[in-house]
Protein backbone atom coordinates (compact mmCIF):
# COMPACT_ATOMS: atom_id res chain seq x y z
CA UNK A 1 0.00 0.00 0.00
CA UNK A 2 1.27 3.47 -0.87
CA UNK A 3 1.45 6.18 1.79
CA UNK A 4 -1.74 7.62 0.42
CA UNK A 5 -3.63 4.51 1.56
CA UNK A 6 -6.28 4.94 -1.11
CA UNK A 7 -9.10 2.43 -0.80
CA UNK A 8 -11.95 2.01 -3.30
CA UNK A 9 -15.05 0.97 -1.34
CA UNK A 10 -18.11 -0.73 -2.85
CA UNK A 11 -21.47 -1.10 -1.08
CA UNK A 12 -24.37 -3.17 -2.50
CA UNK A 13 -25.89 -4.81 0.58
CA UNK A 14 -29.45 -3.51 0.19
CA UNK A 15 -31.03 -0.88 -2.04
CA UNK A 16 -28.17 1.59 -2.53
CA UNK A 17 -25.44 1.04 -5.09
CA UNK A 18 -22.44 3.00 -3.83
CA UNK A 19 -18.73 3.44 -4.47
CA UNK A 20 -16.18 5.77 -2.89
CA UNK A 21 -12.48 6.53 -2.71
CA UNK A 22 -11.15 7.27 0.78
CA UNK A 23 -7.58 8.03 1.86
CA UNK A 24 -6.13 6.48 5.03
CA UNK A 25 -9.60 5.72 6.37
CA UNK A 26 -10.21 9.40 7.10
CA UNK A 27 -10.41 11.57 3.99
CA UNK A 28 -13.27 11.11 1.56
CA UNK A 29 -11.95 11.85 -1.93
CA UNK A 30 -15.15 10.88 -3.74
CA UNK A 31 -18.41 9.19 -2.79
CA UNK A 32 -21.22 8.20 -5.17
CA UNK A 33 -24.56 6.74 -4.08
CA UNK A 34 -27.27 5.60 -6.47
CA UNK A 35 -30.47 4.88 -4.57
CA UNK A 36 -33.08 2.40 -5.72
CA UNK A 37 -35.66 3.64 -3.22
CA UNK A 38 -38.10 4.64 -5.98
CA UNK A 39 -37.79 1.20 -7.56
CA UNK A 40 -38.94 -0.52 -4.35
CA UNK A 41 -41.35 2.09 -2.94
CA UNK A 42 -44.44 0.65 -4.64
CA UNK A 43 -43.83 -2.70 -2.94
CA UNK A 44 -43.52 -1.12 0.51
CA UNK A 45 -40.10 -2.66 1.05
CA UNK A 46 -36.96 -3.80 -0.71
CA UNK A 47 -37.58 -6.60 -3.22
CA UNK A 48 -34.42 -8.76 -3.28
CA UNK A 49 -34.57 -9.85 -6.92
CA UNK A 50 -35.18 -6.29 -8.14
CA UNK A 51 -32.29 -5.06 -5.99
CA UNK A 52 -29.95 -7.69 -7.42
CA UNK A 53 -30.90 -6.74 -10.97
CA UNK A 54 -30.43 -3.03 -10.34
CA UNK A 55 -27.04 -3.54 -8.68
CA UNK A 56 -25.65 -5.42 -11.65
CA UNK A 57 -26.55 -2.54 -13.95
CA UNK A 58 -25.42 0.25 -11.64
CA UNK A 59 -22.26 -1.01 -9.95
CA UNK A 60 -19.77 -0.47 -12.77
CA UNK A 61 -21.02 3.05 -13.68
CA UNK A 62 -21.07 4.04 -10.00
CA UNK A 63 -17.50 2.73 -9.53
CA UNK A 64 -16.44 4.61 -12.66
CA UNK A 65 -17.93 7.83 -11.25
CA UNK A 66 -16.20 7.36 -7.90
CA UNK A 67 -12.87 6.77 -9.63
CA UNK A 68 -13.41 9.85 -11.81
CA UNK A 69 -14.05 11.88 -8.66
CA UNK A 70 -10.59 10.80 -7.52
CA UNK A 71 -9.04 11.85 -10.84
CA UNK A 72 -8.82 8.27 -12.12
CA UNK A 73 -10.14 6.62 -15.26
CA UNK A 74 -11.97 3.32 -14.92
CA UNK A 75 -8.68 1.47 -15.23
CA UNK A 76 -7.73 3.13 -11.96
CA UNK A 77 -5.10 5.32 -13.64
CA UNK A 78 -4.75 9.06 -13.44
CA UNK A 79 -6.44 11.04 -16.22
CA UNK A 80 -3.25 13.10 -16.45
CA UNK A 81 -0.97 10.03 -16.53
CA UNK A 82 -2.92 7.20 -18.23
CA UNK A 83 0.16 4.98 -18.51
CA UNK A 84 1.14 5.57 -14.89
CA UNK A 85 0.61 3.25 -11.94
CA UNK A 86 -2.78 2.16 -10.53
CA UNK A 87 -4.04 4.92 -8.23
CA UNK A 88 -5.92 2.57 -5.88
CA UNK A 89 -4.17 0.61 -3.13
CA UNK A 90 -6.96 -1.79 -2.14
CA UNK A 91 -10.58 -2.60 -3.01
CA UNK A 92 -13.07 -3.10 -0.18
CA UNK A 93 -16.65 -4.34 -0.44
CA UNK A 94 -19.46 -5.11 1.97
CA UNK A 95 -19.68 -8.90 2.46
CA UNK A 96 -22.64 -8.76 4.88
CA UNK A 97 -25.07 -8.45 6.45
CA UNK A 98 -27.55 -7.88 3.63
CA UNK A 99 -29.43 -9.47 0.75
CA UNK A 100 -27.39 -12.32 -0.74
CA UNK A 101 -28.20 -11.48 -4.38
CA UNK A 102 -27.30 -7.85 -3.78
CA UNK A 103 -24.13 -8.46 -1.74
CA UNK A 104 -22.72 -10.88 -4.33
CA UNK A 105 -22.66 -8.19 -7.02
CA UNK A 106 -20.42 -5.92 -4.95
CA UNK A 107 -18.23 -8.76 -3.70
CA UNK A 108 -17.73 -10.18 -7.20
CA UNK A 109 -17.02 -6.72 -8.61
CA UNK A 110 -14.51 -5.86 -5.87
CA UNK A 111 -12.64 -9.16 -6.08
CA UNK A 112 -12.43 -8.86 -9.88
CA UNK A 113 -11.08 -5.29 -9.64
CA UNK A 114 -8.53 -6.45 -7.06
CA UNK A 115 -7.44 -9.19 -9.50
CA UNK A 116 -7.34 -6.75 -12.42
CA UNK A 117 -5.18 -4.25 -10.53
CA UNK A 118 -3.20 -6.76 -8.45
CA UNK A 119 -4.14 -5.03 -5.19
CA UNK A 120 -5.60 -6.50 -1.96
CA UNK A 121 -9.32 -7.23 -1.56
CA UNK A 122 -10.92 -6.49 1.81
CA UNK A 123 -14.33 -7.93 2.75
CA UNK A 124 -16.02 -5.54 5.15
CA UNK A 125 -18.85 -5.94 7.67
CA UNK A 126 -21.44 -3.33 6.71
CA UNK A 127 -22.20 -2.55 10.36
CA UNK A 128 -18.54 -1.89 11.06
CA UNK A 129 -18.65 0.55 8.17
CA UNK A 130 -21.43 2.49 9.89
CA UNK A 131 -19.22 2.90 12.98
CA UNK A 132 -16.79 5.04 10.96
CA UNK A 133 -19.39 7.13 9.14
CA UNK A 134 -19.57 9.95 11.71
CA UNK A 135 -15.78 9.93 12.14
CA UNK A 136 -15.31 10.57 8.43
CA UNK A 137 -16.92 13.96 8.98
CA UNK A 138 -15.16 14.58 12.30
CA UNK A 139 -11.58 13.39 11.85
CA UNK A 140 -10.57 15.32 14.98
CA UNK A 141 -12.89 13.25 17.19
CA UNK A 142 -11.19 11.79 20.26
CA UNK A 143 -11.71 8.13 21.09
CA UNK A 144 -13.20 6.22 22.76
CA UNK A 145 -16.67 7.08 21.60
CA UNK A 146 -19.91 5.21 21.94
CA UNK A 147 -21.78 4.70 18.67
CA UNK A 148 -25.54 4.26 18.45
CA UNK A 149 -26.18 2.48 15.17
CA UNK A 150 -29.90 2.50 14.38
CA UNK A 151 -31.26 1.51 10.98
CA UNK A 152 -34.02 -0.51 9.36
CA UNK A 153 -32.11 -3.72 10.03
CA UNK A 154 -30.09 -3.03 13.17
CA UNK A 155 -29.99 -1.30 16.52
CA UNK A 156 -26.62 -1.56 18.22
CA UNK A 157 -24.58 0.20 20.86
CA UNK A 158 -20.87 -0.07 20.19
CA UNK A 159 -17.77 1.20 21.98
CA UNK A 160 -15.22 2.41 19.40
CA UNK A 161 -11.95 2.32 21.35
CA UNK A 162 -9.51 2.99 18.50
CA UNK A 163 -9.70 2.82 14.69
CA UNK A 164 -10.30 -0.85 13.93
CA UNK A 165 -10.98 -1.74 17.57
CA UNK A 166 -14.51 -1.90 18.92
CA UNK A 167 -16.81 -3.76 21.32
CA UNK A 168 -20.53 -4.44 21.00
CA UNK A 169 -22.27 -3.29 24.19
CA UNK A 170 -25.87 -3.99 23.33
CA UNK A 171 -28.33 -4.76 20.54
CA UNK A 172 -32.03 -5.07 19.85
CA UNK A 173 -33.56 -8.33 20.99
CA UNK A 174 -36.38 -8.12 18.43
CA UNK A 175 -37.21 -5.37 15.91
CA UNK A 176 -34.69 -2.77 14.81
CA UNK A 177 -35.60 0.86 15.55
CA UNK A 178 -36.02 1.67 11.85
CA UNK A 179 -38.17 -1.43 11.41
CA UNK A 180 -40.45 -0.19 14.19
CA UNK A 181 -40.78 3.14 12.35
CA UNK A 182 -41.59 1.34 9.08
CA UNK A 183 -44.14 -1.00 10.65
CA UNK A 184 -45.95 1.74 12.55
CA UNK A 185 -45.94 3.95 9.44
CA UNK A 186 -47.42 1.12 7.41
CA UNK A 187 -50.05 0.48 10.08
CA UNK A 188 -51.01 4.16 10.05
CA UNK A 189 -51.20 4.06 6.26
CA UNK A 190 -48.23 6.39 5.74
CA UNK A 191 -45.73 5.95 2.93
CA UNK A 192 -42.51 3.96 2.64
CA UNK A 193 -39.88 4.43 3.97
CA UNK A 194 -41.73 5.13 7.21
CA UNK A 195 -39.09 7.00 9.20
CA UNK A 196 -39.21 10.32 7.36
CA UNK A 197 -43.04 10.20 7.25
CA UNK A 198 -43.36 9.78 11.01
CA UNK A 199 -40.70 12.44 11.61
CA UNK A 200 -42.65 14.91 9.46
CA UNK A 201 -46.05 14.07 10.91
CA UNK A 202 -44.83 14.12 14.53
CA UNK A 203 -44.04 17.84 14.29
CA UNK A 204 -47.75 18.65 14.41
CA UNK A 205 -48.62 15.98 17.00
CA UNK A 206 -48.69 15.91 20.80
CA UNK A 207 -45.79 13.74 21.98
CA UNK A 208 -47.11 13.68 25.55
CA UNK A 209 -50.63 12.56 24.63
CA UNK A 210 -49.98 8.81 24.79
CA UNK A 211 -47.50 7.24 27.18
CA UNK A 212 -46.28 4.22 25.17
CA UNK A 213 -44.24 1.62 27.09
CA UNK A 214 -40.45 1.82 27.29
CA UNK A 215 -39.49 -1.86 27.29
CA UNK A 216 -36.90 -3.04 29.76
CA UNK A 217 -34.49 -5.76 28.65
CA UNK A 218 -32.28 -8.26 30.44
CA UNK A 219 -29.13 -6.60 29.09
CA UNK A 220 -28.73 -3.01 30.32
CA UNK A 221 -27.70 -1.79 26.86
CA UNK A 222 -30.15 -3.89 24.86
CA UNK A 223 -33.29 -2.68 23.09
CA UNK A 224 -36.75 -4.10 22.39
CA UNK A 225 -39.27 -2.47 20.06
CA UNK A 226 -41.81 -5.17 19.16
CA UNK A 227 -43.92 -4.51 22.28
CA UNK A 228 -44.05 -0.82 21.39
CA UNK A 229 -45.35 -1.58 17.91
CA UNK A 230 -48.05 -3.83 19.42
CA UNK A 231 -48.96 -1.10 21.94
CA UNK A 232 -49.44 1.38 19.08
CA UNK A 233 -51.77 -1.03 17.30
CA UNK A 234 -53.89 -1.75 20.38
CA UNK A 235 -54.08 1.94 21.29
CA UNK A 236 -55.29 2.93 17.83
CA UNK A 237 -57.87 0.10 17.87
CA UNK A 238 -59.15 1.24 21.25
CA UNK A 239 -59.10 4.95 20.29
CA UNK A 240 -60.15 5.18 16.64
CA UNK A 241 -60.56 8.97 16.98
CA UNK A 242 -56.85 9.56 17.69
CA UNK A 243 -54.98 11.49 15.00
CA UNK A 244 -52.04 10.00 13.13
CA UNK A 245 -49.97 13.03 14.16
CA UNK A 246 -50.48 12.36 17.87
CA UNK A 247 -49.72 8.66 17.49
CA UNK A 248 -46.61 9.42 15.41
CA UNK A 249 -45.36 12.01 17.91
CA UNK A 250 -45.97 9.81 20.96
CA UNK A 251 -44.46 6.74 19.29
CA UNK A 252 -41.38 8.68 18.16
CA UNK A 253 -40.99 10.12 21.65
CA UNK A 254 -40.92 6.60 23.12
CA UNK A 255 -38.33 5.32 20.63
CA UNK A 256 -36.04 8.34 21.01
CA UNK A 257 -36.34 8.23 24.80
CA UNK A 258 -35.06 4.68 24.96
CA UNK A 259 -32.32 5.17 22.33
CA UNK A 260 -30.88 8.26 24.04
CA UNK A 261 -31.13 6.92 27.60
CA UNK A 262 -29.28 3.70 26.72
CA UNK A 263 -26.57 5.57 24.77
CA UNK A 264 -25.98 7.98 27.65
CA UNK A 265 -25.70 5.08 30.10
CA UNK A 266 -23.27 3.29 27.77
CA UNK A 267 -21.12 6.42 27.36
CA UNK A 268 -20.86 6.77 31.13
CA UNK A 269 -20.06 3.07 31.53
CA UNK A 270 -17.07 3.12 29.14
CA UNK A 271 -15.86 6.62 29.98
CA UNK A 272 -16.44 7.81 26.42
CA UNK A 273 -15.13 11.17 25.20
CA UNK A 274 -18.16 11.51 22.96
CA UNK A 275 -21.02 9.79 21.20
CA UNK A 276 -21.80 9.19 17.52
CA UNK A 277 -25.07 8.58 15.77
CA UNK A 278 -25.05 6.22 12.79
CA UNK A 279 -27.50 4.49 10.48
CA UNK A 280 -30.65 5.62 8.72
CA UNK A 281 -32.56 6.42 11.93
CA UNK A 282 -29.82 8.98 12.73
CA UNK A 283 -31.61 11.22 10.22
CA UNK A 284 -34.57 11.51 12.63
CA UNK A 285 -34.79 15.13 13.75
CA UNK A 286 -36.03 14.46 17.29
CA UNK A 287 -33.30 11.88 17.87
CA UNK A 288 -30.63 14.31 16.67
CA UNK A 289 -31.88 17.12 18.89
CA UNK A 290 -32.31 14.96 21.97
CA UNK A 291 -28.96 13.22 21.44
CA UNK A 292 -27.04 16.52 21.15
CA UNK A 293 -28.87 18.03 24.16
CA UNK A 294 -28.29 15.05 26.44
CA UNK A 295 -24.57 14.77 25.77
CA UNK A 296 -23.98 18.51 25.90
CA UNK A 297 -25.63 18.51 29.36
CA UNK A 298 -22.98 15.98 30.44
CA UNK A 299 -20.10 17.89 28.88
CA UNK A 300 -19.59 15.30 26.13
CA UNK A 301 -19.24 15.87 22.40
CA UNK A 302 -21.86 14.36 20.11
CA UNK A 303 -21.20 13.66 16.45
CA UNK A 304 -24.24 13.87 14.23
CA UNK A 305 -23.48 12.67 10.73
CA UNK A 306 -24.89 14.43 7.68
CA UNK A 307 -27.83 12.76 5.97
CA UNK A 308 -25.45 11.25 3.38
CA UNK A 309 -23.40 9.63 6.14
CA UNK A 310 -26.46 8.30 8.01
CA UNK A 311 -27.67 6.32 5.05
CA UNK A 312 -25.74 3.55 3.34
CA UNK A 313 -22.68 4.75 1.47
CA UNK A 314 -19.36 3.32 0.35
CA UNK A 315 -17.06 5.87 2.01
CA UNK A 316 -17.70 4.17 5.35
CA UNK A 317 -16.94 0.78 3.74
CA UNK A 318 -13.66 2.10 2.32
CA UNK A 319 -12.74 3.52 5.76
CA UNK A 320 -13.54 0.26 7.55
CA UNK A 321 -11.64 -1.58 4.82
CA UNK A 322 -8.56 0.56 5.38
CA UNK A 323 -8.49 -0.07 9.14
CA UNK A 324 -9.19 -3.78 8.66
CA UNK A 325 -6.35 -4.08 6.14
CA UNK A 326 -4.00 -2.41 8.61
CA UNK A 327 -4.99 -4.73 11.45
CA UNK A 328 -5.76 -8.08 9.80
CA UNK A 329 -4.49 -7.91 6.20
CA UNK A 330 -6.34 -8.76 2.97
CA UNK A 331 -9.35 -11.06 2.69
CA UNK A 332 -8.74 -14.22 0.60
CA UNK A 333 -10.36 -14.34 -2.84
CA UNK A 334 -12.39 -17.41 -1.86
CA UNK A 335 -14.44 -15.33 0.58
CA UNK A 336 -18.13 -15.11 -0.24
CA UNK A 337 -21.00 -12.97 0.99
CA UNK A 338 -22.46 -13.60 4.45
CA UNK A 339 -26.10 -12.43 4.53
CA UNK A 340 -26.51 -12.83 8.31
CA UNK A 341 -23.07 -11.52 9.31
CA UNK A 342 -23.09 -10.20 12.90
CA UNK A 343 -21.09 -7.44 14.51
CA UNK A 344 -19.09 -9.16 17.22
CA UNK A 345 -16.31 -6.75 18.12
CA UNK A 346 -12.76 -6.76 16.79
CA UNK A 347 -10.21 -9.32 17.91
Amino acid sequence: MTDRGRVLGIETSCDETAAAVVERGRTVVSSIVSSQVDLHARYGGVVPELAGRAHIELTLPVVTDALAGAGLDRRGRSFTDPDGPIGIDAVAATIGPGLIGALLVGVSTAKALALAWDVPFVGVNHLEGHLYAAMLEAPEAELPVVVLLASGGHTLLVALDAPGSYRVLGATVDDAAGEAFDKVARYLGLGYPGGPEIDRLAVSGDAALIRFPRASTAGVFDFSFSGLKTAVVSYVRAHPEVTNADVAASFQEAVVDVLVARTVAAAEEIGARGACLAGGVAANSLLRARFAESFAARGLVSYLPSHAMCTDNAAMIAAAGYFQLQRSGPTPLDAGAVPDLQLRGSK
Binding site: I56, T59, L60, V63, T64, R74, R75, G76, L104, V105, G106, S108, T109, A110, K111, A112, L113, L115, A116, W117
Partner: peptide, 9 residues
Protein backbone atom coordinates in the same frame (compact mmCIF):
# COMPACT_ATOMS: atom_id res chain seq x y z
CA UNK B 1 -20.30 -8.71 -12.28
CA UNK B 2 -16.80 -10.20 -12.40
CA UNK B 3 -16.60 -9.91 -16.19
CA UNK B 4 -17.77 -6.27 -16.14
CA UNK B 5 -15.30 -5.36 -13.40
CA UNK B 6 -12.35 -7.18 -14.98
CA UNK B 7 -13.04 -5.58 -18.35
CA UNK B 8 -13.73 -2.16 -16.83
CA UNK B 9 -10.68 -2.28 -14.59
Amino acid sequence: AAAKALAGG
